[in-house]
Amino acid sequence: MLTLTHFLILSFLLFSIGVAGVLLRRNIIIILMSLELIFNSANIALAAFSYFLKGLNGMVFVVFNITVAAAEVAIGLAILVAVYRNRKTVNVDELGDMKG
């Protein structure tokens, strides 16, 4: 029998892997992919709560979440293209100009 805990643990494993990717990688495209992993882990948790609590709010929220993630990827990749055009690098360690 599958319980809520199964899905929450899977969601949290994917979340941790995404956070580790954001913290550890240097390639900004891989960092954006790790952000997608984090979005997906949140979606799994919301859909699991929706199913196990027998309500629809979580599923509606997943639909909105996927929409926002699509907008985020479009803007993120546009910024990436603009940065690459000026700086010719995708390495985040070389993009530290705004660091105080």
Binding site: L2, M33, S50, A70
Partner: peptide, 26 residues
Amino acid sequence: IFILLRSPFLAAVQVFIYVGAVMVLF
């Protein structure tokens, strides 16, 4: 996993938007 959670609409949206649109964009 969405199919296992009885949400076929979410599974279809996931395949269309993420696997279709977002990955092609990447």
